[in-house]
Design a protein around this nucleic acid. Structure first.
Length: 518
RNA sequence: GCCGCGUUGGUCAAGGGGUUAAGACGCCUCCCUUUCACGGAGGAAUCACGGGUUCGAAUCCCGUACGUGGUACCA
């Protein structure tokens, strides 16, 4: 795609928006849309606006709006303007802008680009049944059918006025002209053309006085001076309606540049990734834990299962974008520098949870533990391990971080530094246990009690000396020692563990295990 | 059904007329490690299909198939 494509709109400040509906948890795809918006804005020194699209009162969910802002905050994607952050184009909640939309709807009617429609739900159902029965290829309310319907196009002006005066419920529909080509340029997909004969007369203003998405998005993008509009691919089919609305209302020259983002697909099959797929396959789909206030059903989030925000952002951005090099790990600052909308793919990408975890593992290694030790501490304390020595805690985290993929792994990999193992795999030791080994450990305890240097190299040296004297292979003894100290075959070097937990604790654990072996 | 969009290993993908068709995740083998990981070295595995255009096509064109999105007074 040519670099100059979207440049003409760069004369004005870049302003982008994320426009969520407060209807539930924030989906991966939603966060990625935010991310692409945010990166584009920041790269070009622009503003990132969050506008709440709550025009469908029947789908409104209490708490969802607040939750969305919490997710954005966790991801580090802070809006410049929003319901929460204020801004000169307030209000940023569409329900509070309700009155603004009607005048544009009326204007369109006055200018002949829209009309009043009085059809009831039953009328519409009947129309579709009729069309289906007649074998029509389209079931839409469009130019072919509108003159048979109950609207101001077919009715006499007097009849329309009478209905209006009576307070008959009505909607405003856009009037799509026949035989028109509606072209537009998408920043990702290039030139696209729609035939107006395939576009239906969409409802613009609902009977309850609220705008539909189609009217609201155009009016608000204009009023909020949006320069570039990114949204999911599912919006592509309704783009012609928006283009026409821009043409009639504000002029095409003022229209933002569009980019329709590819979808995030389920790992198996090809459909759009849904919350259900996550439940079924065992991974989260929402950014953070979400509980539906009505059903009380709760859903796990990436944050809560132990993802770092840096990793979450990283794994999302590469789902449909990369900078053309081999680089895979990007910080937010690097992304702002390197992101380009033209490099976003056209096709959808299947979500791969294994790779997602790999990103988190990489970020755990890359970041200093100070970035996440507070969160890890909460995990330890939730399991009943109180952290009293912060320095010791940090040391442990550094020792085990290499083997951690998700934050809770720090607990499984490090809990034995704070308390004796909950269970010891005695059976594993017993399999090859004999009296000489028993005597070795008795002697090891005696030696360790007398040693004055409690340092891992020294402990290892003494351990091997005793083994040599007793003509035993150290390798056959280190396994048992590890199990005595940590409970199983995992964790860092045994002597490092012994050095960390200290003389008294080491000896206690060996003695305890020996008694279990009797 | 109609309309739109898409299609490089199992997955994410680079590549846009001439390449041994990068790299990553996952998988397998080996090395390192007397644990588990990390790390290192290898390996298996890909251009949806059919026609063109061309000296030459994963790359350009046309079909087909498949997938997916839309087809609401939902966004």
């Amino acid at each position: 795609m040519a670099d100059g494509l979207y440049l003409y709109n760069m004369v004005n400040k870049v302003r982008v928006r994320f426009a969520p509906s407060p209807t539930g948890g924030l989906h991966l795809g939603g966060v990625r849309t935010v991310l692409f918006n945010y990166l584009f804005a920041k790269k070009h020194g622009g503003d990132f606006i969050v506008r709440v699209e709550d025009t469908d009162q029947s789908r409104f969910v209490e708490g969802a709006e607040d939750y969305i802002f919490k997710c954005l905050h966790w991801c580090g994607l802070t809006p410049d303007e929003s319901v929460l952050h204020g801004g000169e184009y307030a209000p940023y909640r569409q329900s509070e802008r309700k009155e603004m939309y009607r005048q544009y709807g009326e204007q369109l009617v006055k200018e002949g680009h829209a009309y009043y429609a009085f059809d009831t739900t039953d009328d519409l159902d009947a129309m579709r049944e009729k069309l289906k029965a007649s074998g029509s290829s389209s079931l839409q309310y469009d130019q072919n059918i509108r003159m048979q319907m109950n609207n101001s196009l077919r009715l006499l002006p007097d009849e329309t006025q009478a209905l209006l005066a009576k307070g008959t419920p009505y909607v405003i529909r856009i009037k799509i002209n026949a035989n028109e080509v509606i072209p537009f340029t998408d920043m990702i997909r290039g030139d696209i053309e729609f035939d107006s004969n395939n576009v239906d007369d969409k409802v613009l203003l609902k009977a309850d006085g609220m705008p539909t998405y189609h009217l609201a998005v155009v009016v608000d993008d204009y009023l909020m001076k949006i320069s570039h509009a990114f949204r999911g691919e599912e919006w592509l089919p309704s783009a012609p309606v928006h283009i026409l609305l821009w043409k009639h209302l504000f002029g095409l020259h003022a229209m933002p540049q569009w980019a329709h983002l590819p979808l995030i697909l389920k790992p198996d099959g090809n459909g759009k990734l849904s919350k259900r797929d996550g439940d079924r396959l065992g991974f989260p789909v929402y950014a953070m834990d979400w509980q539906d206030p009505a059903t009380k059903e709760s859903t796990k989030g990436f944050k809560e299962i132990g993802f770092l925000p840096e990793a979450f952002i990283n794994l999302l951005v590469v789902l449909g974008w990369n900078d053309g090099t081999e680089q895979e790990i990007f910080s937010l600052d690097e992304l702002i520098e390197k992101f380009s909308i033209e490099k976003v793919h056209k096709g959808g990408a299947k979500f791969d949870f294994e790779k997602a975890k790999w990103y988190n593992h990489e970020w755990i290694q890359k970041l200093d533990v100070s970035n996440y030790e507070d969160r890890v501490k909460v995990i330890f304390e939730s399991k009943g391990v109180l952290i009293t020595d912060a320095v010791y805690f940090t040391k442990v985290l550094n020792l085990v971080k290499g083997r951690c993929t998700l934050l809770p792994d720090f607990y499984t990999q490090g809990c034995f530094f704070f308390q004796p193992p909950a269970s010891i795999d005695v059976a594993d030791i017993k399999a090859k246990w004999n009296e000489p080994k028993n005597l070795f450990f008795v002697e090891l305890i005696r030696t360790y009690q007398l040693t004055n240097s409690w340092e891992h190299t020294e402990l290892e040296k003494e351990f091997k000396e005793i083994a040599a004297v007793n003509q035993l292979k150290p390798g056959e003894l280190m396994g048992p020692l590890r199990i005595m100290l940590v409970g199983g075959k995992f964790g860092p070097g045994v002597f490092e563990i012994a050095a960390m937990i200290g003389k008294e604790e080491t000896i206690n654990r060996i003695e305890n295990a020996l008694s279990l072996l009797q």
